[in-house]
Computed example of a mutant assay.
Amino acid sequence: MKQIFRNGLIAGLLLTVICYGGLFIAVTFFPQLFVDYLNPLFTSSTSRDVMFYAHAFIISFALSWFWERFKSLFVGNFILRGLEFGAMYAVIALVPVMWISFSAMDITVPMVLSWLFYGLLQAIVAGILFAKLSP
């Protein structure tokens, strides 16, 4: 349990840096994609902002536990194991969530695809880190 927490914390810090750096880059190079977020669907009170900023840690702790439980199923060097881990997570969790989100909410296909890519990237980075820290 201590290793799951430690790895989750390290991955959370790394994903926070990568995700906010990536957000800055994405807004700079793909500003049209972010116009869609002006939709009232995405307006919330500032009292819930901490939940948004904590997401990298929430996903990191969940993925850390998942890694410890199933790491023996992934073979190859740490990069291949991380890629497979991220791809598996995307197929099992992200695709169904993106499907239901698109079918239930007024969001665009590019928005859903960007979320899918973002989640896949997070899982791959976390998987590579976990494969390195806890082979």
Score class of each variant (00 low, 15 high):
residue 125 V to L: 05
residue 56 A to F: 13
residue 57 F to E: 03
residue 97 V to G: 07
residue 109 V to L: 11
residue 6 R to H: 06
residue 132 K to M: 02
residue 127 G to F: 11
residue 100 I to D: 01
residue 2 K to I: 15
residue 97 V to L: 09
residue 69 R to A: 14
residue 117 F to R: 04
residue 18 I to F: 06
residue 57 F to V: 04
residue 58 I to L: 15
residue 76 G to P: 04
residue 15 L to Q: 03
residue 56 A to H: 11
residue 66 F to C: 14
residue 67 W to Q: 00
residue 10 I to Y: 13
residue 104 A to V: 09
residue 118 Y to Q: 11
residue 23 L to M: 08
residue 59 I to F: 15
residue 97 V to T: 14
residue 83 L to I: 09
residue 83 L to D: 00
residue 7 N to V: 00
residue 108 T to I: 10
residue 28 T to K: 12
residue 121 L to W: 09
residue 51 M to F: 08
residue 43 T to P: 00
residue 59 I to W: 09
residue 55 H to W: 14
residue 93 A to S: 09
residue 23 L to D: 14
residue 10 I to T: 06
residue 14 L to E: 02
residue 45 S to D: 15
residue 70 F to M: 03
residue 116 L to G: 14
residue 128 I to G: 00
residue 41 L to M: 09
residue 93 A to P: 03
residue 106 D to Y: 11
residue 26 A to D: 12
residue 84 E to A: 07
residue 49 D to C: 08
residue 57 F to N: 09
residue 19 C to E: 07
residue 63 L to V: 08
residue 107 I to M: 15
residue 126 A to K: 05
residue 75 V to P: 00
residue 49 D to I: 07
residue 46 T to Q: 12
residue 23 L to R: 13
residue 134 S to Y: 02
residue 73 L to V: 03
residue 68 E to P: 00
residue 90 A to N: 14
residue 20 Y to T: 10
residue 61 F to P: 05
residue 92 I to M: 13
residue 94 L to K: 04
residue 45 S to A: 12
residue 88 M to C: 13
residue 60 S to R: 05
residue 115 W to I: 10
residue 58 I to D: 08
residue 58 I to N: 06
residue 40 P to K: 01
residue 135 P to Q: 07
residue 3 Q to H: 06
residue 50 V to T: 09
residue 30 F to R: 10
residue 62 A to Y: 10
residue 134 S to R: 02
residue 106 D to R: 05
residue 105 M to V: 01
residue 74 F to Q: 02
residue 107 I to N: 04
residue 135 P to T: 04
residue 95 V to N: 04
residue 7 N to G: 00
residue 4 I to M: 12
residue 77 N to M: 04
residue 39 N to P: 01
residue 55 H to L: 14
residue 121 L to G: 11
residue 119 G to D: 11
residue 15 L to P: 05
residue 111 M to Y: 11
residue 47 S to K: 06
residue 31 P to I: 08
residue 11 A to Q: 02
residue 97 V to H: 09
residue 32 Q to W: 05
residue 113 L to S: 13
residue 26 A to T: 13
residue 103 S to H: 14
residue 77 N to V: 01
residue 55 H to T: 13
residue 114 S to L: 13
residue 28 T to S: 05
residue 59 I to Q: 08
residue 86 G to N: 03
residue 99 W to V: 10
residue 91 V to I: 15
residue 132 K to V: 05
residue 101 S to K: 12
residue 95 V to P: 06
residue 51 M to G: 09
residue 6 R to G: 01
residue 81 R to V: 00
residue 73 L to E: 08
residue 28 T to D: 12
residue 86 G to H: 03
residue 49 D to N: 06
residue 72 S to M: 08
residue 21 G to F: 11
residue 6 R to V: 10
residue 55 H to G: 05
residue 2 K to V: 13
residue 91 V to A: 15
residue 130 F to C: 00
residue 104 A to S: 09
residue 44 S to C: 05
residue 3 Q to D: 14
residue 40 P to W: 03
residue 49 D to S: 11
residue 75 V to R: 11
residue 5 F to Y: 12
residue 61 F to T: 04
residue 81 R to G: 02
residue 70 F to S: 12
residue 63 L to R: 06
residue 67 W to N: 05
residue 52 F to Y: 07
residue 41 L to R: 01
residue 120 L to N: 08
residue 135 P to I: 00
